[in-house]
C-alpha cells in the first residue's frame, strides 16, 4: 500500500558522518558521467562501484536496495523496447512496415542503442539511490541554504517535509482501520475507501496546518525558519575515495567511448 521512505534509512546509514558535499559530488558526478558516456561500460562500472559502496560502506540491506530498482526497471524495460523497435541502422534482423510512415524494426544499431540507454538508467539510478540512502534531507536543507535557494521555497520545503511524516502517520491508522473493517474487499469498495481515506486525511492535515501556524505565532514566528545544521568534517580518506572513484570513472568513459554491444567500433 505505501512505500518505505529512504529517509529513515538515510538517517541511520553507515556514511551519515561523511561530509554532505562529498556525498553529493560523488552521486551527482556519477550521474553526469553516465550521461556523458557514449558506451554501455561506464554506467555499469559506476553502478557496480556505487552498489558496493551502498551495500558495504553505507550498510544498506541487499533486499531493500534491490527493491528500489523494481520501478525504474519496469519503466526502463518498457521504454527500451520502444527504442529498439523504432531506431534503425546497421544489420536488420526483423522488420515490419504496416504503414508508410510507421515501421518497426530490430537492427544491430537499435539493440546497441537500447542496451546503452538501459545501462545508463541503471548507472544513473545507482547515483541517485546513493545520494538518497546516504544523505538525509535535513542535511540537504543546510546545503540548499548555502546555495541561496530562495527562502520562501526553503520554508515551504521544510514544512512539506515535516507534514509528510505527520500525514503518513494519520494515513497508516486510517488505512489499518479500513482494512480491519474489510474496506478493500472489491474494486468498487476499494475506490470508495481510498477516496474517503484521502479526504479525511486532507481535512486532518489542513487542521494540523492551522494548528502549526498558531503554535508558531505563539513562539514569535517572523516568517523565517532557523536552520540549525551540523557541519560534518572533511576527512582525508573519503576525499581520496571520491577523487579516485571519479577519476577512474572518467578514464573508463574516455577509454570505452567506441565500444558497443554488437560489432565494437574502431
Amino acid at each position: 500500500m505505501y512505500e518505505e521512505f529512504l529517509e529513515d534509512i538515510a538517517q541511520t546509514n553507515g556514511l551519515r558522518g561523511v561530509n554532505t558535499y562529498l556525498k553529493l559530488i560523488a552521486g551527482i558526478g556519477a550521474i553526469l558521467l553516465c550521461l556523458l558516456s557514449t558506451s554501455y561500460i561506464p554506467p555499469l562500472f559506476i553502478a557496480s562501484v556505487l552498489s558496493m559502496a551502498i551495500l558495504y560502506l553505507a550498510r544498506i540491506e541487499l533486499r531493500t536496495y534491490g527493491e528500489l530498482f523494481i520501478v525504474p526497471f519496469s519503466f526502463a524495460v518498457m521504454s527500451v523496447v520502444v527504442i529498439v523497435l523504432l531506431s534503425g541502422g546497421g544489420e536488420v534482423y526483423w522488420s515490419w512496415n504496416p504503414l508508410p510512415w510507421f515501421s518497426l524494426s530490430i537492427t544491430s544499431e537499435s539493440i546497441n542503442e537500447g542496451f546503452f540507454v538501459f545501462c545508463r538508467v541503471i548507472g544513473g539510478m545507482s547515483g541517485l539511490i546513493f545520494i538518497a540512502v546516504t544523505t538525509p534531507m535535513t542535511d540537504l536543507f543546510v546545503v540548499m541554504k548555502q546555495f541561496r535557494i530562495p527562502e520562501v521555497v526553503l520554508d515551504l520545503a521544510m514544512i512539506i517535509y515535516r507534514s509528510i511524516f505527520m500525514i503518513m502517520e494519520q494515513l497508516k491508522q486510517t488505512y489499518q482501520a479500513q482494512v480491519m473493517r474489510l474496506g478493500y474487499g472489491s474494486f468498487r469498495e476499494s475506490i470508495q475507501s481510498f477516496a474517503t481515506m484521502c479526504g479525511s486525511v486532507f481535512i486532518a492535515s489542513w487542521e494540523s496546518g492551522e494548528d502549526l501556524i498558531r503554535a508558531m505565532d505563539a513562539r514569535c514566528y517572523s516568517g523565517k525558519f532557523a536552520i540549525l545544521g551540523e557541519t560534518r568534517p572533511v576527512e582525508f580518506l573519503p576525499v581520496l575515495a571520491v577523487a579516485v572513484f571519479l577519476i577512474l570513472s572518467s578514464l573508463v568513459v574516455v577509454i570505452s567511448r567506441n565500444i558497443t554491444l554488437i560489432g565494437a567500433g574502431p
Binding site: I159, M166, I167, L171
Partner: peptide, 16 residues
C-alpha cells in the same frame, strides 16, 4: 502569512 502552512500541508498531501 497563514497561507504558508496550508501550502506546505498541500505539498505533503501531494507527496503522500
Amino acid at each position: 502569512r497563514e497561507a504558508l502552512p496550508l501550502l506546505g500541508v498541500t505539498g505533503g498531501f501531494i507527496f503522500i
